[in-house]
Design a protein around this nucleic acid. Structure first.
Length: 426
RNA sequence: GGGGAGAUACUCAAGCGGCCAACGAGGGCAGACUGUAAAUCUGCUGACCUAGUCUUCGCAGGUUCGAAUCCUGCUCUCCCCA
């Protein structure tokens, strides 16, 4: 094999645990490995990048990656890491989600590779016609309830309650592995550490039912040094879909990583080699204010997930919003650049007549733009001195009229340092 | 089927007739300091023309001058026994 995958994942901090024999099996021959993606939304988010990178590493190491979309498992709901019973999704939503997730996964894997092209499968295809009685006879018979109850995902829910539906999830996922093993010669399942229980049920099923060999490998949960949840910004989840999270916001998310986190992330979310990364870290330690790690990370991922053009726009927008630019610089932007730069920033159109009479700060921020949710909040913000228009701090006495417009058309509202809003007058 | 406990703002969690828009903690937001970082400090965190008002404590009624706090019914959750 070209690369020792286990070694590679280990130094990147992507390996938490693996089953005995996994490394040997990977180094012996080219095999197939899979990861499941649940269609809980029509887009994946940055958290899903970890399993995606696992699959890409697998392919780069000369193995065949299988991305499995959980059309069937998505109908049941994985209890792993969940405190309460999940809401079931209806069929239409699920179909829409499957389409969205599929399109995103296709961007990361090479389906044309000569020796080891990636595969994209949906487990609904083999569960659709699998009836309940057959399932409990053929699959359920091999796994004891005692065994299933011992899993953390089940144990932790014994007090608060859990439906039979979610209880049976691990069997269904276990059968996936069995099916892939039998029909696609898949010998490896990977995933996040919360998947360990589910994965082991699969290897157990393969061993008992088929007598074949199967391995497992899990990545640790990505964390933040301050204990917060990875993958959230103030707007909520950071998605891969540009309609949900603009490339600008996506770029900013990575750029805002703390130093400690950036050191971990650069290993996990880029393919830079160890020496390069060590050099980057050394440089960063030398002059941390340049934030070389964060920039490299943000650049690499924005261009990979979106595009080079999207990255350039995000950088330009960041430059203008956070660089040393002033109100004058802003005004010197031509309309075309202005529009492009602020594409990812929330905006609202208002009537020109609104500005005919001068408008108060509060009306502008709340009533006309909807940027802030209530007058109270606007008053609060004024008290904090956190509001700006066109990069200039304002107070309650300021009013606005056409003379304030950039390019005769736009107003740039700002709350704090990082939250922007564009008002378009027309 | 029998017995018990409970439902309070984003979350946890006080309060048990007026001093409650509701202690405290976490989270969130903002300001200062910085590097659009971390840590730290400070303020804010129901709405309304910043002035007192108004609507909030599972839901619906009732008692009272006055209720998140008492009573009745309903809904839901958990625990124990069968």
């Amino acid at each position: 094999m070209k690369v020792d995958l286990v070694k590679e994942l280990t130094w990147r901090g992507l390996l938490q645990d693996s089953m005995p024999g996994t490394q040997e099996a990977l180094n012996k021959e080219s095999i197939s490995g899979y990861i499941g993606f649940d269609p809980t939304a029509d887009s994946l988010h940055v958290g899903s990048l970890v399993p995606i990178f696992l699959l890409m590493h697998l392919q780069r190491a000369g193995h065949t990656p299988i991305a499995l979309i959980g059309g069937a498992t998505g109908m049941v709901g994985d209890p792993s890491g969940k405190k309460a019973e999940r809401q079931l999704l209806d069929k239409e939503t699920l179909d829409k989600n499957i389409k969205g997730v599929r399109a995103q996964l296709e961007k990361f894997l090479d389906f044309e590779a000569k020796a080891n092209p990636a595969k994209l499968l949906n487990n609904y295809d083999w569960f659709e016609s699998f009836n309940f009685l057959d399932f409990i006879r053929d699959v359920g018979k091999h796994i004891s309830v005692n065994y299933m109850m011992a899993k953390d995902s089940v144990k932790s829910r014994l007090e608060t309650g859990m439906s039979f539906t979610e209880f049976s999830y691990q069997l269904i996922q276990g059968y996936d592995f069995y099916y892939l093993n039998k029909n696609h010669n898949c010998k490896l399942q990977m995933g996040g550490s919360d998947q360990w229980g589910n994965i082991v049920t699969g290897t157990e099923l393969i061993r008992r039912k088929g007598g074949a060999e199967a391995y497992a490998l899990i990545a640790p949960l990505v964390t933040k040094a301050d204990g917060g949840k990875f993958g959230k910004s103030e707007e909520g989840n950071v998605w891969l879909d540009p309609k949900r999270t603009s490339p600008y916001a996506f770029y900013q998310f990575w750029l805002n990583a703390s130093d400690v986190d950036a050191e971990h992330y650069i290993k996990i979310f880029t393919f830079l080699e160890q020496p390069q990364i060590e050099e980057l870290i050394a440089k960063h330690t030398e002059s941390p204010h340049l934030r070389l790690l964060q920039k490299t990370l943000a650049e690499d991922l924005t261009s990979r997930v979106h595009s080079v053009e999207a990255l350039k726009m995000a950088q330009k927008a960041s430059q203008i919003l956070f660089g040393k630019s002033t109100a004058d610089d802003l005004k010197s932007l031509d309309q075309q650049s202005f529009l492009e730069v602020f594409k990812g920033v929330p905006s609202k159109k208002i009537e020109k007549t609104t500005l005919n009479s001068s408008v108060s700060v509060i009306d502008l921020f709340v009533k006309h733009s909807g940027f802030l949710s209530s007058n109270s909040e606007a008053n609060r913000a004024l008290k904090e001195n956190s509001l700006s228009v066109n990069k200039t701090k304002i107070n309650a006495e300021n009013t606005f009229s056409e003379s304030n417009l950039i390019n005769g058309k736009y107003l740039l509202l700002q709350r704090g340092k990082k939250k922007y809003f564009v008002v378009e007058v027309g």
